[in-house]
Design a binder for these strands. Sequence first.
DNA 1: TTGTATGCGTTATCAG
DNA 2: CTGATAACGCATACAA
Lengths: 345, 345
Amino acid sequence: MKNSKSVVTIYDIAKKLNVSAATVSRSLNDFPGVNKSTKKKIVDTAREMGYSSNAFAANLRTKRSNTIGVIVPRLNSSFMSDVIAGIEKVANNSNFNLIISQSLETMKKENNNIQTMFNNRVDGLLVSLAYDTTNIDHFENFIKRDIPVIFFDRIYEHKSCPNIHINNFQAGYDITEHLIKQGCKKIIHITATGVQNVYQERFRGYKSALSNYGIGFSDDMLIINNLSADSGTEAAKQILQLPILPDGIFSANDVCAINCIMALKNAGLKVPQDIAVAGFNNDPSCRIIDPNLTTIDYRGYEMGEVAANLLINHLTNNYDIQLTHSLVLRHELIIRESSLKTGRF
Amino acid sequence: MKNSKSVVTIYDIAKKLNVSAATVSRSLNDFPGVNKSTKKKIVDTAREMGYSSNAFAANLRTKRSNTIGVIVPRLNSSFMSDVIAGIEKVANNSNFNLIISQSLETMKKENNNIQTMFNNRVDGLLVSLAYDTTNIDHFENFIKRDIPVIFFDRIYEHKSCPNIHINNFQAGYDITEHLIKQGCKKIIHITATGVQNVYQERFRGYKSALSNYGIGFSDDMLIINNLSADSGTEAAKQILQLPILPDGIFSANDVCAINCIMALKNAGLKVPQDIAVAGFNNDPSCRIIDPNLTTIDYRGYEMGEVAANLLINHLTNNYDIQLTHSLVLRHELIIRESSLKTGRF
DNA sequence: TTGTATGCGTTATCAG
DNA sequence: CTGATAACGCATACAA
């Protein structure tokens, strides 16, 4: 019923050409030391017969899957999509397959994904951690078997896992400094909790800038939520109830910043005149919102390329993965209307 | 060096417990007719020893991969992300794995993806076609072997491939009718070429509405591009050069509509007063752009669920896949500011 | 209820 | 340069 037409194997080709399966295998895999003309014959009839290699058998034999597992929180941000495009390009060029899955920001699903990846014997893992991941015990299976795990963006410090990220501290500092230079005296920071390096570091940068410019920090300047669109709206409400309104907001992502701006505008406030706002990520929507959003740009595509290259280099050339422990990519402050109080910067 | 700690197999478990590998296999797979206590012993030591099934070996033996291949044009739209979340949920519940890949809108890459999927012996394929796919010969390998291929959203009519979509004709009609009722007399339609049912159908709906309301159609009312952000800007330029400006625009997606609006506003036109604009998809940015964008909403999550269910039902219960050839999901006209000329609707 | 034997389609080793 | 053969880890038909 199903699979009615049976699949052709190297034996079928071998029989047809009166050679051995070994020779067929060697030819199809570009092994050195095969007679050129027999090889051509084999390759031709393989195509002719519609042969296609059975990955299971090959993988079972070689104990390599030529497959990379990718686990990300969500696929639907333009940043992640860029990252994956970058990974895909590099993987394709090196003939690696990709299994992609999303943790939907939960550690539980992240764990499930990891199990599946393990059962499918991926050669290595490229991971950006879920929002609520608090430790990486669930990666132990990989780590103790020396199957490489590389973290990017949302990373976790672990001696066996290289990581790729931007200098979130500096970026947080840069954007806060920019707001200060625009004349902001009271800057609210909206961020997320969790062990996420990205948010912790941005927060540290923010505080450092405040302190360098002699501005005090108190807990009521911090709003902690999950940085979703709804949280942005909610954050605006909280801000509007403050006894003294702030004159600047630095949100740790764009989505939240944008919805915050919309809520503030609805309440009759002017951005940036009353409150300057800055986000993080440079999503395409930054240029849709009115006023256009000041933010930090960093290239996901490049990050994906770098991550995949690091992994594949390790896999194919056996580079010691621990040597390159940490890779820091460039970020850039993008100044737009939403933060321009003075007209100059 | 690598994989230093060797992986435990059913043989290791068997040896340790002095049973046969067959019994271990049966226990681990919940086969009926295994002594309850031996089974428990086996399952326990399996966990203890950190056993994890080798998917290759199992798949090679059973000739099933329990894996579904998903090929989509791009992963970075909120629509696609919803679809994939829906597919993932259903697949997870039925213990199917997912291999996801993107065609980046080219038929060439789509073809590559298909080959990879085939080599990995996916049990079935869930596909939304690339922008420039003009035929589906590259699916022949699957079709002739009765490996199910299901198209969703960007579908192609083929007797062996069920499809899931919305009524794009009706949706195109609805949105055009709405613009007409708002008083629009000259409505430009921006769309894409290709064999894509979605665009063809929306266009047919548009023309049908015009004709039903006694409005003529001529080729200069049609702008064909690739519906990207840049194309939206470009389309606005073209429109501004028209001898007689239109009073309505129906773009076949939101991204293009939004960038078009921004360019029109930059040129000093008022939306919707001068020109009413409508999009398609209900991307989150529809509620960011000022004015908020009128559009068609359809639920990707549901589409993903339905597609995965159809495939898995076929796979596990051997439902005849040809019986359910076509599944049409609901769509909804979402009216927002960008099209409201009269204040009523 | 359990064990034995075999094959899934490759690749790798060893001879020739 | 090529062939024979074993092995990868699992699931299953058959036997006990």
